[in-house]
Structure formats: C-alpha cells, structure tokens
C-alpha cells in the first residue's frame, strides 16, 4: 500500500533525479572516505610538516592537538567531511593558502590543457580510426596502427623534451615552458581561470596568441596520446560493426560505401566511443603530471606532486578529491549521453 502511495506521489523523472543525486552523494562519500583514510594511514606525519623536525615535544604536541589529530579517526573524518561541505579543504602547509584557493588557481590550467588535448585526440583520432577500418590492410591502416602502437610505447616526458628541443629551441614555432610569457602574466583578469577564454573575454589578443603558443605543444602531446588510443579503439569498434549482417543489408539496398561507413557502422559505435573518450579525458586530467613537469605547467598534477613531496596532506587530499569528482562527473555525463544515443538503453 505505502509503496504504491509513494509511487504515485513522485513522478518518474523525480525518482530518476533523486536516484541520481543519491548515487552521486554515495560515490562522493566513498571517494572522501577512501582518500581520507589512505591519507591518514600513510606514514607521513602532517605535524612534522607544520612544525619542522627540530621542534620541542611540547610544541609538537600542541600543534598535533590544534590540528585535531588526537581525536578518534572517525571523528576526524566527520570534521573533515563537514569542512568540505562548507567548502573548506583546510590550509596548505607549503603554500600557506587555503587548499580551495590553490585548486581554483591550478586546476583550470590542467583543465585547459586536457580539454585542448582531448579535442585534438577526438577530432583527428575518430576519423583516422574509421578510415583505417574502412580500408583495412591498406597503407593508411598500417600507418595508423603504428601511431597507435607509438602512443603506447613512447613515454610522455621524452616526447615533451623532444618537442621542446625541436619546435621551441630549434624551429622557434612555439613558446617554451609555462602558461604565458612573464611580461604578460597576470595581465588578464581571471574569470574562468582558463587563459584562452579569459583573454578572449578581456579582448586581449596579445595574451591570447601568447597563451595559445604556450599551450599548443603540450596540448598536442597530450592529444597525441589520446589520439593513439581513440584511433585504435575506433578502428576495432568499426571493424566489428562492418562485419555485421546489417552492413550487408545496407549494401543490398544500394547504399554507397561512404554512407555505410558513417551512418551504418559509425552510428552504433558512438556509445562505445563516448566511454573511450570519457576515460581518455579523465586520464588526461589526472595523469598529465609528466607533461606538466616537463613544461613547467602550473597545473593540478604539478601541484599534487609538490604537495606529496612536502607531506602537505590537506593539499594532497583536496587535489585527489577534485580529480575524483571530475572522474565521477565525466562518468555521469557518459551515462546520460548513452541514454540519449542508444535506443536500446532508453
């Protein structure tokens, strides 16, 4: 009875929305718990990072008490979650700023580079993969397979260094490390934190071209890795579809080859590709530490590495949480697109 009643009280879309929010909250809580407890279990003493290793025991104890580290672990966790719900990630030991503020500074740099990278990967990788499948065994197919292999085999830092030597030092086609030249730094008022977008909003084209010249090489290198992966996956998905019976049906109908490839074989794989692209994007957002280091890119990967080396646990937890949240967001967006694009999943 009650079940029926509540079923009538809530329309279907509200149920979906509530389920969505609940699953989001649960995943978020799980993420928080795991990062928090790992952060507390690792043999890093956050107190030492604050007071230094020559502090007298009394100072050490006072600092520990002040940081709440004498409380039971579960209580510490509750305090931590409560802080995060208020938008308080704690203070970074190494930068002496709230972690939230740091993330707002560093994350957009990574977001900008990863987004440009994934755009390059998708715009070039998907057609390449489809072409390779359509001409299986041809020269193009072989070239694309080699690119795919290279994407696995070549380390990012090596490609970054070679890229810098060639395109920056020798050919002078692009600007060097960093986000923008030093004399332009801080000229653009931050709105989104994305330099390319902010400079356009401000109408500052000098900053825009300068920032673009800085970002294009690292973004292309990131893009190359996602391109290699996306092209390989597109190729194998397409080959799978091109072997299906409904491709024969389309040919019997007299449908031209070009239409068979894009309408009949490509449409069914869009859903699979979304997953691949989402994963690849998430990987660029979290795993660009190597490229960020080589290019002195002030991004979240760089921030996290520095924080980790300084035992700056609040910063590490905060950074991990942001990356985790991005991962969850990308997954949820993929799920939603799935439902829109695949009639069988509706």
């Amino acid at each position: 009875m009650t079940q029926k009643g509540s079923g009538r009280l809530l329309p279907a879309w509200a149920k979906t929305a509530i389920g969505f929010v609940l699953s989001l909250a649960l995943t978020g809580l799980g993420l928080l718990a795991i990062t928090f407890f790992i952060g507390r279990v690792v043999p890093i003493d956050p107190v030492l990072a604050v007071v230094g290793d020559r502090a007298p025991p009394a100072v050490y104890e006072a600092a520990k008490e002040r940081m709440g580290l004498n409380d039971p672990l579960i209580l510490q966790f509750v305090h931590y979650v409560a802080g995060i719900l208020r938008g308080d990630f704690g203070l970074s030991v190494s930068t002496q700023r709230p972690v939230m503020e740091d993330i707002a500074r560093y994350f957009p740099a990574t977001l900008e580079m990863a987004t440009l990278g994934i755009l390059i990967g998708v715009v070039i990788g998907v057609p390449l993969g489809a072409l390779a499948a359509a001409r299986q065994g041809s020269i193009i197919d072989q070239v694309i397979r080699v690119i795919g292999l290279a994407g696995y085999a070549i380390p990012a830092f090596w490609l970054g260094l070679v890229g810098l030597v060639l395109f920056y030092a020798q050919l002078k086609w692009v600007a060097g490390p960093g986000r923008i030249d030093i004399f332009l730094d801080g000229m653009v008022p931050p709105v989104t934190g994305l330099l390319l977008v902010d400079s356009l909003i401000a109408g500052d084209f000098e900053s825009f071209t300068n920032a673009f010249s800085h970002i294009i090489l690292p973004a292309t290198i990131l893009g190359f890795f996602s391109l290699a992966y996306i092209a390989r996956m597109t190729r194998s998905f397409m080959l799978d579809q091109l072997g299906q019976e409904f491709i024969i049906t389309a040919r019997v109908k007299g449908v031209p080859a070009r239409v068979i490839i894009w309408r009949h074989a490509f449409r069914p794989i869009r859903v699979q590709l979304i997953t691949v692209i989402g994963l690849s994007y998430a990987a660029l957002l979290e795993g660009s530490v190597m490229v960020e280091t080589v290019f002195s890119w002030p991004g979240i990967g760089n921030y996290l590495t520095t924080a980790l080396l300084n035992a700056d646990m609040n910063a590490v937890l905060g950074g991990t949480l942001v990356i985790g949240a991005v991962f969850i967001a990308i997954n949820k967006i993929s799920d939603a697109l799935y439902r829109i694009l695949d009639p069988r999943a509706r």
Binding site: E245, F246, T249, K253, G254, P256, H264, R267
Partner: peptide, 24 residues
C-alpha cells in the same frame, strides 16, 4: 552494381535480429 541493387535486384537475409540496423 550499386544502382542495380535494391532497385532491380534484391535480397532478403536470414535473421532480422542481425540484419536490421539496431540504432535506426
């Protein structure tokens, strides 16, 4: 051949589970 197929020559395949495009 393509111009002939569908219009003048045609073929019914075995299993509609596989011979129809699932997303059209």
């Amino acid at each position: 051949f393509r111009r002939l197929r569908g219009a003048r020559l045609s073929m019914i395949l075995q299993d509609p589970k596989f011979s129809l495009n699932p997303v059209m």
